[in-house]
């Protein structure tokens, strides 16, 4: 697998803030890549550089093995910004045609693909309606279609599920999986960590213009695990300092939450419990949720970063 997108030491400074301050990362082909970060972390600026809207002050972007060429490569990128935008007074069919042709599709090609997508999303009857007649969820679906219509190699979705009901969320989610399976790469930016855990293969966390975390979801969880286990046994458990290889940190119904001491292994705990002549019902590792990791890493960031002088 080769990288579809590589960022090397990317920098973008604005008058009052270092929006992106030396970020490097690589996105593999076919990956669903989660780009995470608190509000104002520099995600949007980073995305705007990848979509050719901004030029980086420093650093290099490599797209599909070549130096990024904003004029030609934007045809292979689909971008759905967080703030949705469509012409309110324009008919939906014409609007989709217009946006598709701006991405470089021929008229016939655009028409064919729009029809396919409209059938898939049950939007055929919308063609002559105007965007102002649509509900928020409906226009979101239209926005998604116009983003992926030209079969981009790289799809960037900023909060794609906001405002969607569970049924439509699932529809889009399935579409994201199938696009990735068919070779598109997806960069997915969101604050909803449960969606990231469900969807993303790989994540990067950005804060204050810097990348502070990068890895697969599994790696990241392993990295931040605190050796916590939940133990279900018949009788009360107590820890004795220096004797038990663990500490009890809490209790949830019948389960004891334990933290394994440094230098000990889970098997040591099991060994200890077996020696206690008790029945073990369950023994599970507790991995941190991405939400916990996110909060842990980002907590304490001053909210008014954008007003700092650099």
């Amino acid at each position: 697998m080769s990288s579809i997108l590589e960022l090397q030491n990317l920098k973008k400074y604005f008058a009052t803030q270092k929006a992106v301050d030396d970020i490097s990362l690589a996105v593999e082909r076919g990956q669903i890549f989660g780009l995470l970060g608190p509000n104002g972390a520099g995600k949007t600026t980073l995305i705007r550089m990848i979509t050719g809207i901004f030029y980086p002050d420093e650093g290099q972007i490599t797209f599909d093995g070549k130096k990024f060429d904003p004029i030609n490569d934007v045809g292979h990128i689909g971008y759905m910004p967080e703030e949705r935008g469509l012409y309110k007074k324009m008919k939906i069919g014409e609007q989709a045609m217009y946006l598709a042709q701006l991405k470089g599709l021929s008229k016939a090609d655009a028409l064919k693909k729009i029809k396919q997508w409209f059938i898939k999303f049950e939007m055929e009857s919308w063609w002559n309606k105007k965007v102002e007649d649509l509900s928020k969820g409906m226009s979101q679906k239209l926005q998604f279609v116009t983003t992926v219509l030209h079969e981009p190699k790289l799809i960037i979705l900023d909060e794609p599920f906001s405002g969607l009901d569970p049924v439509n969320s699932n529809l889009i989610k399935d579409e994201i999986f199938s696009l990735a399976k068919n070779g598109s790469t997806i960069i997915f930016s969101t604050h909803r960590m449960e969606q990231v855990e469900e969807i993303c293969d790989h994540i990067a966390l950005v804060n204050r213009g810097k990348k502070i975390l990068d890895g697969t979801v599994k790696e990241v969880k392993q990295e931040f695990k605190e050796n916590l286990f939940s133990v279900g046994i018949d009788h009360e458990l107590s820890s004795v300092n220096g004797i038990t290889p663990f500490e009890i940190v809490g209790k949830k119904k019948d389960l004891h939450i334990i933290k394994i001491n440094e230098g000990s292994k889970p098997n040591d705990v099991l060994q200890y419990l077996l020696n206690q002549q008790t029945t073990i019902h369950s023994f599970n590792e507790i991995l941190p949720s991405l939400n916990d990791i996110f909060i842990k890493l980002v907590e304490g960031t001053p909210a008014a970063r954008q007003f700092q002088k650099i």
């Binding site: 979509t51 050719g52 809207i53 904003p70 004029i71 934007v74 045809g75 990128i77 971008y79 759905m80 910004p81 703030e83 949705r84 935008g85 469509l86 012409y87 309110k88 946006l99 701006l102 991405k103 116009t146």
Partner: peptide, 17 residues
């Protein structure tokens, strides 16, 4: 102004300069 307030501007500038 319409393009800006409708936020379509960002979609368009990701296709054209």
């Amino acid at each position: 102004m319409e393009e800006k307030t409708n936020r379509i501007a960002e979609v368009i500038v990701s296709s054209v300069k």
